[in-house]
Design a binder for these strands. Structure first.
Length: 467
RNA sequence: GGCGGCGUGGCCAAGUGGCUAAGGCGAAGGUCUGCAAAACCUUUAUUCAUCGGUUCGAAUCCGAUCGCCGCCUCCA
């Protein structure tokens, strides 16, 4: 049984999809006006882990992530650079796909774009206007918040409190200051589409409702996104979708905590951010994913390069065991001691089942690593089956679920460089047999200066090339 | 002003009513090794922001206080 914390009910609930084993999942994707930052990456990676774990549990996940390709920021950027909006959108959509691929994020089933769903969006607004949930004021269409009785149920706010808040912009056209735009009347030099209310473009919230329902149906299982989307974005999505089409838009709402920099939310508007591609130049996707997995998805994560470096040290321990496993020659002997690894997988799954508790899941992996190393230390001969099982455990947990790649699937090309290193290892081996340790050490030291680390073990001498 | 979250060892971080408070990084000592590296072992929180309360029993529940952060405006 899996538990998921549902923002809507503020409780952990048993996960029961509408049409098991099918699961529908929608994640709010990027507005493609710039490179995304490492805080955005956290949401993308964590939703990827949620999806991967569901697939691990044999659910058939239909995963949709939208790209917002028309909005104020995009238009602003296009004007600044004096290029068409589509060109900006295309550039950053390409960059987005490049970056998420580097981060090891599995491809979504569909990446719908707002501009490709204008008819669906217009139809949805039309429906809301016809039923009085929305009203048209001179080409601007607003959602009538007072009409929807569930307004505020996701964010725990009530309309009166919100109205007394001082930060709502004054707009004479709105009946209620909280009413939000569904359709924005075209201004000069802006992309615009035909509609029953005249030329214009959609408001931000409506696209997600339209695309979610279009691709996944009127009730979906999981909708995920950052904490900052709870209000108003997700609240408004509920209002739109449930007013028109369904009495339950989303079964489970999942929200990710912020990534902070110096205890402050990382955001474009504050200017305190690193882009994901910037970080990826110096750090691997593995270390980023490991870092994210070390903290529960719902809480804040105070990001720093030092933290990333300590994650890299933690990963080293995993890599070392992986290399050790790959170098073992399995024994065919009978009566070998065997290693039971079931309990580690059980612990891993229990942690993940409990609202995707990745830090605890990692702890179960480290317990395995310690105990399996101990097992290898104690036993000179190891059965093939134990090696296969160990590899299987690491692949399932770290790679399949957390997306940390360990065993390279491509054939290891033996380059001249490798041959050369092997030659030096041979020479050094002879020196060691002659007890010529100064030569042996010199070879090791010189190689180390070149970034090639030798390590002697009972399985022979191995080497690692660092970049 | 309204609503919400957080405060656990040097750092990061699980745990949210009951065995000795997971795990990672770091540090110290040790085993192994020709020496290293790796691995393993031991040590590193009588204590969970502070003060009260409930309870047979609390880091976990309640109240107060202090500190930090977020949402209420575009934002993952």
């Amino acid at each position: 049984m899996m538990l998921i914390y549902n923002t809507l009910t503020k409780k952990k609930e048993e996960f029961i999809p509408k049409n098991s084993p099918n699961v529908t999942m929608y994640v709010c994707g990027p507005t493609i006006y710039d490179y995304f930052h490492i805080g955005n990456a956290r949401s993308f990676v964590m939703s990827d882990i949620v999806r991967r774990y569901l697939e691990y549990k044999n659910f058939d996940v239909k995963f949709v992530m939208n790209l917002t390709d028309v909005d104020d920021k995009l238009i602003k950027k296009a004007n600044e650079e004096n290029v068409p909006v589509e060109q900006v959108a295309e550039k950053y959509a390409d960059a987005f796909f490049e970056d998420i691929e580097k981060l090891g994020i599995k491809k979504a089933t569909v990446y719908p774009k707002a501009t490709e769903h204008m008819q669906d969006i217009v139809d949805l607004i039309k429906n809301l206007v016809d039923t009085d949930y929305a009203y048209n004021v001179d080409g601007n269409v607003f959602y009538n918040v007072n009409k929807f009785k569930g307004y505020g149920k996701l964010s725990g706010k009530n309309i009166d409190d919100l109205e007394s808040g001082a930060r709502i912009e004054i707009n004479e056209e709105k009946k209620n200051p909280l009413d939000f735009s569904l359709w924005k009347k075209a201004k000069p030099n802006e992309p615009a589409w035909e509609s029953p209310w005249g030329k214009g473009r959609p408001g931000w919230h409506i696209e997600c409702s339209a695309m979610s329902m279009k691709h996944l149906g009127e009730t979906i299982d999981i909708h995920a996104g950052g904490n900052d989307l709870i209000f108003p974005h997700h609240e408004n999505e509920i209002a739109q979708s449930e007013a028109c089409c369904t009495n339950e838009f989303v079964k489970y709402w999942i929200h990710f905590g912020f990534l902070n920099l110096n205890q402050e939310k990382m955001s474009k508007s504050l200017g305190n951010f690193f882009t994901a591609r910037e970080i990826l130049k110096e750090h691997s996707a593995n270390s980023i994913r490991y870092l994210f997995s070390q903290t529960h998805y719902s809480g804040p994560l105070n990001f720093s390069k030092e933290l990333l470096e300590s994650s890299e040290k933690g990963l080293e321990k995993i890599y070392n065991l992986v290399q050790r496993i790959e170098n073992i020659k399995p024994s065919m002997a009978d009566n070998l001691n065997t290693f039971e690894n079931e309990r580690y997988l059980f612990a891993f799954e229990s942690a993940m089942d409990d609202n995707f508790n990745t830090p605890q899941a990692l702890a179960s992996i480290y317990d395995f690593i310690r105990d399996f190393n101990k097992f290898l230390n104690k036993n000179d001969q190891v059965a093939k089956n134990d090696i296969i099982k160990a590899k299987d455990f690491l692949t399932k947990t770290l790679t399949d679920v957390l997306g940390i790649v360990l065993f390279s699937t491509e054939e290891k090309g033996e380059s001249k460089e490798d041959d050369l290193i092997k030659l030096l290892i041979e020479i050094r081996q002879k020196a060691k047999l002659d007890k010529n340790y100064s030569l042996a050490d010199e070879i090791r030291n010189k190689l180390s200066e070149l970034g090639i680390t030798l390590a002697d073990s009972k399985e022979g001498t191995t080497y690692k090339i660092s970049k």
